[in-house]
Amino acid sequence: MLCILAVAALVAGCGSNGPTASQAITLSAAPEAPSSPSPNPSPSPSVDPGTLPQTHVLPQADDPAFQAGVQELWNAIVQDDPSIALPFFFPKSAYLQVKAISNPSADYENRLIPWYKLDIEAAHALLGSNADSAQFVSVTVPKSQAEWIVPGVEYNKGSYYRVYGTRLDYSVNGHTASFGIFSLISWRGEWYIVHLGPSTRSTNKGIVYAPEG
């Protein structure tokens, strides 16, 4: 297994252990459609959700937007093309609303997005020659560990739900393995990635977080 590097302080917090089965919601590769609409429907695709005010709605892992985002992430990893998964990353306009740092725009563009791209490339390297045959199996979000982060915490002026411990399972030639998504945060009732790999690292290199199998 490829184990990739880590460690230099980030704005967002530290990780936690993975969830137990009883704590988590698991999404399979072909989930059933939810029986009722999302409690906070996404705005029109023409509207940048980050320009709208935050809501106190806890995201659901069976939400179609989240399912689509996970599939975008998986496709980006398999194809070694981070641009595919950029819509699944926390919106820049929302980041500007929540972060109380001197230059959140530069932090977003010069640190968060480059690390996200490097981490996707690192996950592709983890698959190696098996990338074309690797299959997405499921994603598990430990819903009970989601925490509402208030202003003044994590250098914030705004709030959001944050969850550690999400894991993505995949299969290669009948063998199942997984890796972690370091942290998801919410905007208007939807989960987005803010750190695919760890939120601290000492060098500007991609990191596959907690690979197993």
Rank of each mutant, 00 (worst) to 15 (best):
M1A: 10
E32G: 15
S42M: 07
N204E: 11
P151T: 05
A61D: 02
L2P: 03
S22K: 13
L112K: 09
I101T: 12
V57L: 06
G189K: 09
N204D: 14
H124F: 12
A6Q: 11
E109W: 00
A123N: 14
N156Q: 13
L184K: 02
S105I: 01
S129G: 06
Y192H: 07
V11A: 14
N40R: 11
I181G: 11
T166V: 14
V57P: 00
S159K: 07
A12P: 07
L118K: 15
T20H: 12
T26Q: 12
A146F: 03
S129C: 03
C14V: 13
D132G: 09
T166Y: 00
E212L: 05
W115Y: 14
L52R: 04
A9I: 08
S16E: 14
F66G: 06
N75I: 00
G158T: 05
A61K: 07
G15W: 02
P39C: 02
W115F: 10
S44T: 08
D63Y: 04
Y192L: 08
H175Y: 01
W115I: 05
N173L: 04
S202I: 09
P64F: 04
F88C: 09
S178G: 11
A61E: 04
H175I: 10
E190F: 07
L168R: 01
I84R: 06
I120Q: 07
V150Y: 04
L168K: 01
Q135E: 14
S138Y: 04
Q60G: 07
A29K: 10
S35W: 03
L196F: 09
P19D: 08
L58G: 01
L127W: 11
E72K: 11
D169Y: 14
A123S: 13
V153Y: 06
F182D: 14
Q97V: 03
D62H: 15
V7K: 09
G13T: 14
P151C: 09
I207G: 02
L126Q: 12
Y108M: 05
S202K: 08
D48W: 03
F66E: 04
P53V: 02
T20V: 02
P31A: 05
A85Q: 05
V194M: 10
N103I: 11
L196Q: 09
G69Q: 07
T200H: 08
P104F: 13
T140G: 02
D81M: 10
V78W: 02
E121D: 09
V139A: 13
Q97F: 07
L58C: 03
P211F: 09
